[in-house]
């Protein structure tokens, strides 16, 4: 019910924005002809606004469609999309004045088979951190299956499975098993809000980071390298796992860094526009976990 009400409000706002010429294009969700999850859609005429929809299948992260756009845009932003927009603003990828953010309170999205989308179950941010207009939900009802998911510690075990408590051998096996599935199609990179480099490190020839073969070490290089690039920048939208055609579950690596970053530096990506990202700053008292002659509590 709540979705329908939000949808009506959203359509009203979008119609106004387009009719008054405040924006040139609305980036939102519309139905997929195949009856699966909603797909991104770009609305330019007020008459087409009725195509927009808002329900529990609006899984795609739309933020990536905003960068490198010269038009004025309005974007339907779930909390994760909004967090990505905050990061884009901090990283100078968008001009805030050209982006109108229609924030949607979000109870979490579902995949076409009805299961919670990756990242949605353990998500703790239900209201977008920035918006120009907020479309509230009556009551944010998250998945029944995950009554416990409001508690971060519990939910963490569900997919990160506190992997640091595992034996080293099991951790390596888990990682390598996932790598075995990867076909290096780079969909995770394309779908990730944070991977917008003009030339990705894997596409460089000099130095050639990634030999174009399918060796497991190549896959490790790619996934570890990408995880490192997202350290402290991940907005936990789960797109990487959602789009993977081979079902590689690699989000736990980045999540571990996200949690570490929060624990050590008190930083969560995309929550506050005025905060400097953890990896772009330092403090004199930073701990040296695992350094030789430093804090030894980890090695």
């Amino acid at each position: 019910m709540s979705f329908k009400k939000q949808e009506n409000q959203m359509i009203e706002v979008c119609t106004r924005l387009l009719t008054e010429g405040e924006v040139d294009v609305v980036i939102g969700f519309s139905s997929d002809q195949l009856g699966g999850c909603a797909i991104p859609s770009f609305i330019r005429k007020p008459l087409d606004v009725k195509d927009l929809k808002w329900d529990d299948t609006c899984t795609p992260n739309l933020a990536k469609y905003v960068i490198e756009r010269k038009e004025k845009v309005a974007i339907i932003a779930k909390p994760c999309d909004a967090r990505a927009l905050v990061m884009y603003q901090i990283e100078n990828q968008i001009d805030r004045n050209h982006v109108y953010i229609i924030g949607m309170e979000c109870p979490g999205m579902k995949l076409s088979d009805g299961t919670p989308a990756p990242g949605c179950q353990e998500c703790t941010v239900r209201t977008p951190p920035i918006f120009d207009i907020l479309i509230e939900a009556d009551k944010i009802q998250t998945f029944e299956v995950s009554e416990l998911s409001s508690n971060r510690e519990n939910s963490k075990t569900s997919f990160v499975e506190s992997s640091m408590e595992w034996e080293l051998e099991d951790r390596l096996k888990r990682f390598q098993d996932e790598m075995q599935k990867c076909i290096l199609c780079f969909s995770c990179r394309q779908a990730c809000y944070g991977c917008y480099c003009k030339t990705c490190f894997i596409e460089r020839d000099v130095p050639n980071w990634l030999p174009q073969d399918l060796d497991i070490s190549t896959k490790m290089m790619f996934h570890l390298g990408r995880a490192m690039h997202l350290a402290g920048r991940c907005v936990e939208c789960g797109a990487c796992e959602r789009v993977c055609p081979s079902g590689v579950k690699i989000r736990y690596l980045i999540q571990e860094l996200t949690d570490l970053c929060h624990e050590q530096y008190g930083y969560r990506a995309g929550m506050d526009m005025n905060e400097t990202p953890a990896m772009a700053t330092f403090s004199l008292g930073d701990r040296e976990i695992g350094f030789l002659g430093g804090d030894q509590n980890e090695s």
Binding site: I39, F42, Q190, P245
Partner: peptide
Amino acid sequence: AERCLGCGICTYLCPTCHCFAFKDV
């Protein structure tokens, strides 16, 4: 093409796509 993310899933799953590259290692 506005919606396209630019990943290569379509070409990898397509039964007729046949482009390849060589690599010397």
